[in-house]
Amino acid sequence: MPTLNIYEVEAFGGGHAFKGNPAAVVPLDSFPDDAILQTIAAANNLSETAFFAPDPASGTLRLRWFTPAVEVKLCGHATLATGFVIMTILEPHLPAVTFDSASGLLAVTKSDDVLALDFPARTSETIAPIPGLAEVLGAKPIAYYKSDENFMVEFASAAEVAALTPDFKALKGLTELGLIATAPADAGNGVDFVSRFFAPAAGIDEDPVTGSAHCTLAPFWAGRLGKAKLEARQISARGGFLSVEDHGSRVTIAGKCRLYLQGQIDTGQN
Rank of each mutant, 00 (worst) to 15 (best):
D29C: 07
R62G: 03
F151K: 03
D266F: 14
S47E: 02
F66H: 12
T67F: 06
P22W: 00
I130R: 09
L117W: 04
D55I: 06
L217H: 12
G59Y: 10
A201R: 13
G13K: 03
F51A: 01
R122D: 07
E245H: 07
L230C: 07
E176D: 13
T60D: 11
I86R: 04
L94P: 00
G178Y: 02
V25Q: 02
V108Y: 05
P2S: 14
S249I: 09
P56K: 15
S157Y: 05
L164T: 05
A11S: 12
G76Q: 08
Y260D: 03
P27N: 04
A107Q: 13
D34A: 13
I40H: 00
I130Q: 06
V209E: 00
F12W: 06
S236L: 02
E10A: 12
G15I: 11
P200T: 10
R62A: 13
N270R: 13
P54Q: 09
L106Q: 08
E245R: 13
L137T: 06
T165Q: 14
P32V: 07
E135S: 14
D55Q: 07
E8Q: 15
L133M: 08
L217C: 12
P120H: 00
S58D: 01
S243D: 12
I6S: 01
A53D: 03
S124L: 14
F220P: 01
L106H: 08
S236K: 01
E206D: 06
E125R: 15
A228S: 14
D34S: 12
P56L: 12
P54M: 09
D207Y: 06
D33E: 15
Y145K: 10
Q234R: 12
